[in-house]
Design a binder for these strands. Structure first.
Ligand SMILES: NC(=O)c1ccc[n+]([C@@H]2O[C@H](COP(=O)([O-])OP(=O)(O)OC[C@H]3O[C@@H](n4cnc5c(N)ncnc54)[C@H](O)[C@@H]3O)[C@@H](O)[C@H]2O)c1
Ligand SMILES: NC(=O)c1ccc[n+]([C@@H]2O[C@H](COP(=O)([O-])OP(=O)(O)OC[C@H]3O[C@@H](n4cnc5c(N)ncnc54)[C@H](O)[C@@H]3O)[C@@H](O)[C@H]2O)c1
Lengths: 269, 269
DNA sequence: TCAATATCGAGAAATATTTCTCGATATTAA
DNA sequence: TTAATATCGAGAAATATTTCTCGATATTGA
């Protein structure tokens, strides 16, 4: 309608595709270790319980072409996904908040495989500044903007309490950072041109919680069929029509009450 | 088609709705602190830049009914979402893997607000067993199944290296645990009746990475229009038609090269 | 009191995403 | 060589999700 597409390559990438591609990526790396030379959508689909066609549509987004009856060369496919997801331009990032969450992230060197490299760490706690975390020296916050600008850092990771998140955001933007990975449970106010990715464990937990609650409800309400019917399994947390339906029928396999001795106490501490 | 819906209340909940509801929940709690008595879909929509109708459809899932021209009573709405997402049945959970990730999770007491309570922590590292993390004593792994059964624990949190994740899973299932929150980058093999929620930071990172890469590409290819056009902002990471289109047009606001002094060096460490 | 208006609820329409279908083609095995 | 078959690619169909539309209604202020 009133939308302008500037470039074919910028065609909208469905969010669900964006969530599945990295899964394939990791799986393909496993296959590569096991010296597979080629892989079909059927292979991948079986691993994740997705329809082969869906996998094919996802891979299509990366621009790779496969061979009928054979599939895709594993190495080329990995390269294509890597390129498409931007893992190639290893993005250097600043992290603010060397608390427990921040430290875990800093110590996590595997991010580099996915194109992220945490190069500097900042905090505003005087007792932390100058100390090292996983080999990185914690710097004072006020140095951030200038360093970000000089090093042309594009990505900022926010691991401070929610109350401090907006201030940290503003500081990062003032240093030219334009993409944020936010671990604080806070909505950041930013200009439209800034990319924000909220890593919200609460939301994630909610999804699990809802499914457990639903399964419990379903167990109470729907006693007629006593055996577990379907479930999402590991394909969970993806938008998948079948998955969604499966969820509706989901019955949680609760610890069978008959498994217990009559005298068993339910412990609490 | 061949699907049986057992109970109207179990009607399929769209995944996107499941991701948005907890956002509303947190926002509503903020409003409550500020003593709002009622709230409309328009209010909520403005906060997150969602269409009011979408918010209304989401809230509809919880079963709440509002008043025309007024909206919903804040307290009742919070209660409805809480109930719907299962935050009421405070779910007690076991966590395995008292490493950096696990410790961060254990120390995170806010999960309780969302219905999750980590009651026991396990590890297989003899040097950690018996020690405390955030007030919780680390127990030997072999005690898990029996304790889980006695305490009727339903939720297990996996924070061990990927290689150990399947073993830990099997142990948890043997203790009657039937819902897993998995932080390891591994696909867990479980029966269909088990709920698995993978917390995959890689996938999340990939999504950010792809957007940055796309914005960079778009900047290279599409110079005609020099000003930033649209973006996802904080509503990112949701499936939202407008959002998706916005992304396609997304242009990253890069640090303007002219901002720098001619002699500026790009630092690396 | 009554008009103006914001908002709800529900159903229709539009859009996005997944699944199906089919023709083409590369590999395998007879 | 040839038939059987698995798989790709592309477009059509089905399904899911979002957005639009409209009638109903509660509140506000004239
Ligand atoms: N720990 C978890 O499992 C977990 C889970 C989900 C979300 N989070 C979120 O991640 C964030 C960090 O959590 P955490 O557990 O690491 O907290 P933490 O208290 O351990 O760490 C916070 C760090 O931020 C620093 N800080 C505070 N204000 C600052 C400021 N204005 N500028 C710079 N640094 C500042 C503190 O000095 C501290 O080092 C929080 O927003 C939390 O809600 C944590
Ligand atoms: N740290 C991060 O930021 C981060 C990010 C994403 C994912 N993860 C994932 O979370 C998991 C934990 O990461 P981490 O950084 O905390 O690692 P870590 O090495 O700090 O901790 C792992 C813990 O698990 C324990 N463990 C190992 N094998 C075990 C077994 N078989 N049974 C019981 N306990 C066992 C270890 O003793 C250790 O305490 C990993 O799978 C990692 O990939 C971590």
């Amino acid at each position: 309608m009133k939308r302008l597409i500037f470039d074919a390559r910028l065609k909208s990438v469905p969010e669900p595709t964006l969530r599945r591609l990295p899964m394939y990526y990791r799986y393909l790396k496993e296959l590569q270790k096991e010296h597979w030379s080629s892989v079909s959508c059927t292979n991948i689909g079986e691993e994740f319980r997705f329809e082969p066609t869906q996998v094919r549509k996802d891979l299509e987004m990366t621009g790779i072409v496969g061979k009928p009856r054979v599939g895709y060369p594993v190495a080329a496919l990995i390269a294509a996904i890597k390129q498409f997801l931007g893992f190639n331009n290893v993005n250097e990032a600043f992290l603010v908040g060397a608390g427990s969450m921040g430290s875990a992230l800093i110590g996590y060197n595997k991010f580099q495989e996915y194109g992220l490299n945490i190069v500097q760490v900042f905090d505003n706690d005087p007792s932390k500044i100058g100390k090292q975390v996983h080999g990185k020296t914690i710097l004072a916050l006020d140095k951030l903007p200038e360093m970000a600008r000089q090093m042309r850092i594009l990505i900022g990771i926010i691991a401070v309490p929610a109350a401090a998140a907006q201030d940290v955001t503003d500081l990062m933007l003032s240093g030219g950072i334009c993409a944020l990975w936010n671990f604080a449970p806070a909505r950041l106010q930013v200009p439209d041109s800034i990319i924000v990715h909220n890593e919200d464990l609460y939301c994630s937990l909610a999804s699990l919680s809802q499914k457990v609650a639903q399964a419990l409800r379903s167990r109470e309400k729907v006693e007629p069929s006593p055996l577990p019917v379907q479930a999402t399994g590991k394909e969970d947390n993806l938008t998948n029509a079948r998955g969604v339906y499966a969820q509706t029928q989901n019955k949680l396999r609760l610890p069978d009450l008959d498994d217990r001795m009559p005298g068993d106490e339910v412990l609490r501490n």
